[in-house]
Amino acid sequence: MLTKRIIPCLDIRDGRTVKGVNFVNIRDAGDPVELAAQYAQQGADELVFLDITATVEGRETFVELVARIAAVLNIPFTVGGGISTVEQVSRLLQAGADKVSINSAAVKNPQLIDDIAANFGSQALVVAIDTRTLPDGKAHVHTHGGRTATALETVAWAQECARRGAGEILLTSMDADGTQNGFALDITRQVADAVPIPVIASGGGGTAEHFARVFAQGRADAGLAASIFHFGTLPVPALKAQLRETYQIPVR
């Protein structure tokens, strides 16, 4: 049976993880390569590395880091952060990433989705959508780390992304992000029902129940989180055990 995927996300700046990670057997909590291997061993289904570096030098470091991660990691991983050209995608995939994630650049230039899908296949392309409910009561796409509201409605944009060749949607609710009060079930469900491709839910996951609900009610195919895994509040093995035993959610 196809399982629901659990995906830890690591923020990277200048080739190092930004937040400290509470692993017992870790020698260097800032080394993404060591953390990646540790997550894989814990049973994470995939990993996402988000480059939040602003400098050109930092971006070069990130490509080198992707190559080092690819050499050791035996599960799939996605890289994202500031990708805006097919050439950047080519370098990251050649370095060994399985998928790239694009966000603001796709909103600015939707043709980028078609171009990446045509060159590398839909399986290599995740379109990340940051969504927040505006005073009009509708969920709108936000760009630039969720700071800038756009006129695009989230569900319609997700459908356009799928039509243009996205292989997956990574949907982050800015309303829920950082709260650990649970994923945004309504918008996740609306997007998941509206597109024929898998949806990764992100933002607000704090407990196994939150994941169970976003899989069952939100119809997400995967759940992504950062802090709960990094700080050891809810380690991947414990989360999966609870999903399996308490909530009868199929996980690997």
Partner: peptide, 8 residues
């Protein structure tokens, strides 16, 4: 959903 994506 298509593709069939993930662990089976």
């Amino acid at each position: 959903k298509v593709p069939h994506m993930g662990w089976n």
